[in-house]
Each structure stands twice: as structure tokens, then as C-alpha cells.
Design a protein around this nucleic acid. Sequence first.
RNA 1: GGUACCUUGGCCGAGUGGCUAGGCACCGGUCUGCAAAACCGGCUACGGCGGUUCGACUCCGCCAGGUACCUCCA
Length: 488
Amino acid sequence: MQGKLFLYNSINRKKEEFIPINFPFVGMYVCGPTVYGDAHLGHARPAITFDLLFRYLRHLEYKVRYVRNITDVGHLENDADQGEDKIGKKARLEQLEPMEVVQYFADRYHREMDKLNVLKPSIEPRASGHIIEQIEMTKKILDSGFAYISNGSVYFDVEKYNEKYNYGKLSGRILEDLYSNTRELDGQSEKKNSFDFALWKQASPEHIMRWPSPWSDGFPGWHMECSAMGHKYLGEKFDIHGGGMDLLFPHHECEIAQNTVAVGENSINYWVHNNMITINGQKMGKSLGNFITLDDLFNGTNQVLEKAYSPMTIRFFILQAHYRSTLDFSNEALQAAEKGLARLMKGNETLNKIKASASGNYNVSELKKNCYDAMNDDLNSPIVIAHLFDALKTINSVEAGTETIDDANLEILKQVYHSFLFEILGLKNENEGSGSNEILKEVVDMVLNLRMQAKANKDYATSDLIRNELTKIGITVKDKKDGFEWEI
RNA sequence: GGUACCUUGGCCGAGUGGCUAGGCACCGGUCUGCAAAACCGGCUACGGCGGUUCGACUCCGCCAGGUACCUCCA
């Protein structure tokens, strides 16, 4: 093994050694998107964070079952338990079937994730496909006495729960504080206390997404799906539950309460939360309206964007910050990421070209250890990247002849560089295959060969004209000692 | 108002009680007809005020500023 992996566990607020329940198997559940709009930069963060964890666990040869849900029902639009279903609302506005909306945005989400090289989860369950499981779980909670029926809806009795267990153990909240701090909302009379949350909600007549249940025609409460589906696919106890920090309270706190009653105490060992992406120091979020969709980023179609940024630039940008830190969006930062990534990718090409010497003065084992140490320390991808840049310096020095490397070390270097860059960080070389159009390639080569002739004749007016015109089209010409390179 | 967290060089962003983070930008150099690219080198910061300590950016206290959660949000 490559050392011990430590993860920051939100529930204890410290880094803990990761020990799976059933070695070598690992169960991981991550809160996925609610598909009622295009994915934005904020959605990319958990997807990439847990993709990193998924990839690293697999690299460590764990057998991982990674479940990431799609929420297609149950998230309410406005005030807690009083609003309109998000999917339903969008469907009414667009005159579409709710499932049509879900299909459309789920497809788009998948497409963006593919571009970001985010591996598909093992199972991607939908809330609407697990209504029965959610009803069964609600029944269990009712039977245990920690829930009550009110006007066709079922609510979790937080106060009663807190007498026996600890409501707030994850988010560090104290129930007494919630009495005074929870907002007074209209129509809360159905609930005993404002902080009680719905397990099942009776649907109002205009509500289109509805299912029959023992209590009413309605829909499941917004915390039920993760509890029901997580335990369905990963068992009564499983290893990791992840999601954005903004889900810590109330979503995950409520999940814990539900699980405790219906499944048992401490049914999830590690709670892992990624931080937010900020823009001008403020959280990028749907409700604030300050989000940039991934589609906009990839195409440069947003006023705040100076240019388009490729999916790998976005991925690298996110990996350059630790997942538990906020990450501030800016054009400058993205452009920095773009250039840095290009250098690392170039380094891999150079690495494949350099030759080993009989003896070398570079020992790669330290690099290898440093990279694993960084990953083991709560997935410190920025440190891994820093070490890869150090390796890059060596690679370039070997190519320049100022350093040497022996055959054995070169092989290990290739293997380490490759596995961290591509396999674990999940980056890929986007330039490969671009400009794959053979005719275009030959035409540009031909033009540049003409330019070489002009240069040989010292006809710099012509050579500069050719270069300028190509630049205008978007082709960058790079002169080399004995020829040229170009890229689009 | 309650709770938690943050404040690092021009920008992004790691980390540590004493030892260079890294990237980008910038500056200098190599290369080039000139550029660009690439490469090499330089650039040494930790909000303010106190305290603990042989020594603090790192620990403690206070202050200032900011953010998150408390309502759907990744």
C-alpha cells in the first residue's frame, strides 16, 4: 500500500484514517444534482472532488461502489414544506411533462460531466424511481414513534428525537438555538415545531408530481431520497457520504436523524464535504443568480468571461485548490490554470521523449512518496500538482542535458507522472486529436513550408505576412530550430 | 441575532512553531531575422494590536474586515 489515507470527517471535525467497513469494498454516496437547470461551476466542484476520491480509492485497489443520485422530485421551491416542487414548477412554465424536464437536464448534466472527465458513478438512482423505498422508510420512522401525521403529511419529530439522540451532531447545532432562530413561516401550523421536517408531503391540487401513499397523494420529503437510496444500495452501514458544505444543515443533519431511527445509529462512517466556489468573494449559487454555467465556460458565452475555458482548464482550476477551501473564480485565475496545465501536459510529451543515461543523479522515489503523502493527507491535490511541477523541472532539465536519469528511475518517473496526472487527477491532454482534420493539417503544413522558404530567402515580409494571417485565423505558429510547430 | 469558518506576495492558492510551497503575471537571460513559444534564473508574503515562547505567518486574547449555515442551493 501507499501509506494510510486520512479524510477530514465533518462529524468529528478532524482528519481520520480511512478504514472501510468491509475491506476491500468501499461504499460511497454523494448528493447529486437537482435537474431543473443547467449545471454551473458550483456543480463541478463536488463532481470533481468525489471523482478524485473515487479515482484515488480505486487506485489504492479498493472495490468502490459509488452512488450519486439524481434528484428529480421533492425539492421544494420556496419556504420549507410550503412551496412548489422545483421540477413541477419548471415543467408548468415550459408546458412540459416533468419527466421531460428531468430527462433534458439530466442528459445535459451527463454531457458536461463527461467533458470534465468525471467518471460515471456505479449507480445513479433517481428519487422518483424510489418512491416505494421512501414510503417504507417513512413507515419505519412512524412506527418507531419519531414522526407524526398531520393533515396527510408526515413530519419528523425533532424535539422527541433530540431527547434520546443528538439532533445537530453533524452541524454543531444546538436545538435550543433553533427555537429562537428558525424563521416564522406562514402555514406552519401543521408542524409541532418549525424545525420539524417533512418525510411525506400531501400534494396540493395543482401539484403535478404525486404518488399514492398510506397518508395522502403526495411526494416524499426532501431528505428522504438520500437516506432511502443510500441504504438500499450500500447497506445499513456504509463508509462515505459526501456532498457540498451547504448541505450540511439541514439536509445531512436530517438524514442522520432519519437513518438513526430507521436504520440504526452511526450508519455512515465518514462525512465528507466540499467547499463552495465563490465569485467576487461570494458563494456562487443558483439562488443568488451569480452562477456561470459550464456550458457558458466551455463556450465563453457569458459577459463575465474574457474567453472560453476548456473543460480540463476548469478541472485543473478546481484541483489546484484543496476541496475544503473556498475557491474564487476569476478570469485571471482560470487563465493561470490554463497555462499551468498546458505546461504539465507538454511535460508529459517531453517525458516520453527523453532518454535515460547509464547513471543518473535524480532519484524519483521522493517524488513518488511526496505525491502519495499529499493525496493521503485529505486529498491534497494542490500539493500533488506542486510536486508534478517539480518533476516537470527535472524532466526539462534532463531534456536540456543539465541533469541525468537512469533507466530504472525514468521508468518510475513515467509511471508516477502518468498515474497521478491522468489516472488520479483525471486530467487529459485536450490537444491530442484537435486539428485531426488531415486536409487542414496538410494545408497548414504546406503554407508553413512556403514560409520556411521565404525565410531561407530572407524574405521576411512574406514570412511575417503568412504568420500574421495564420494568427488571425487562430493558428499559432511556433518556429523551432529546424522547422516549425503550430496549434489551433 | 445564533453558530462556524476565513483574512498569505500583483492574482490564484498550499503549508508549517525556527528550514524555498506551487502556478500565473512581472523582470532578466538562452533561443530567434524579428517575434511567439519553450527553457533557465530572479521576485520571499502571511489583516491590525497585544500576549505565550529562545523564536510565531503558524499557539492564545482582543479588534477590524469578509464568508457560510440558520430557507431551495453543490
